[in-house]
Design a protein around this nucleic acid. Structure first.
Length: 206
DNA sequence: CAAGAGATCATCT
DNA sequence: GATGATCTCTTGA
């Protein structure tokens, strides 16, 4: 590193503080675009630029698990912001969410896709795939690539091996669409709570 | 390329 | 006992 790095934007790396996650869920979901998901692991670190998120905005949102009430599964969402909510679905896949808003207000943002940035060989071996585009372009895929499973449920994103980093990029241009796979949620099905970085090849689908 | 089925299990009824 | 915030592979145009 040169002495110029002090003033270099490219050196800006700040772990998102809890106050970031305490904002509105929709705000967090949008602002996470262009941030970096970091997974520290004995096998090696994995980093990806977040390109797709979904907001699950609280107890009234019929697509949000917390709309079913406070249970063992949803407990983490009722806790303070800035923790991971990881659950297992379809008998195969883990989903990574980041808990938002105030304690006792259950809401979270689903991380749906990232662009691989570092630890790419590790991701390839975990995914048994060689195609960069397919390594983390979906919520199940990225959990596999980043070795995220239920052992991380409840993990503190402000003090642990999983967190999100701000590298000083502005939030990229994005588009909003309805969320994927929530056809059962009545009027909540069509709410535009899915956010995608415009032009990214690494989103799960258009 | 689009559409459909199957895989497989934690969670809630 | 049903179902799901998914993925992959197969089928057929």
């Amino acid at each position: 590193m040169s002495i110029f790095s002090v003033n270099s934007l490219s050196d800006h790396r700040v772990k998102l503080p809890r106050s970031f996650y305490e904002q509105t869920t929709v705000g967090v979901a949008k602002q996470l675009l262009g941030k970096y998901l970091v997974r520290k692991h004995p096998e090696g670190d994995a980093i990806g630029r977040i390109v797709e998120t979904e907001a699950y905005v609280g107890p009234r949102d019929l697509a949000c698990h917390a709309s079913k009430g406070r249970t063992a599964r949803t407990e983490v969402m009722f806790g303070p912001a800035g923790h991971a909510y990881v659950y297992f679905i379809y008998g195969f896949y883990n989903m990574l969410n980041l808990v938002t808003e105030a304690k006792d207000y259950p809401a979270a943002v689903l991380i749906r896709a990232v662009e691989p940035v570092a630890g790419i060989d590790l991701m390839k071996s975990r995914r048994q795939l060689d195609t960069l585009r397919d390594l983390a372009s979906g919520p199940g895929k990225l959990c596999q690539a980043f070795a995220v499973d239920r052992s991380l449920n409840g993990a503190d994103l402000c003090d642990g091996l999983l967190y999100v980093e701000d590298r000083g990029e502005p939030v990229p241009k994005f588009q909003a669409t309805p969320r994927v796979g929530v056809d059962y949620a009545g009027k909540w099905t069509t709410k535009p709570y899915r956010y995608l970085v415009r032009g990214s090849k690494f989103v799960s689908k258009l």
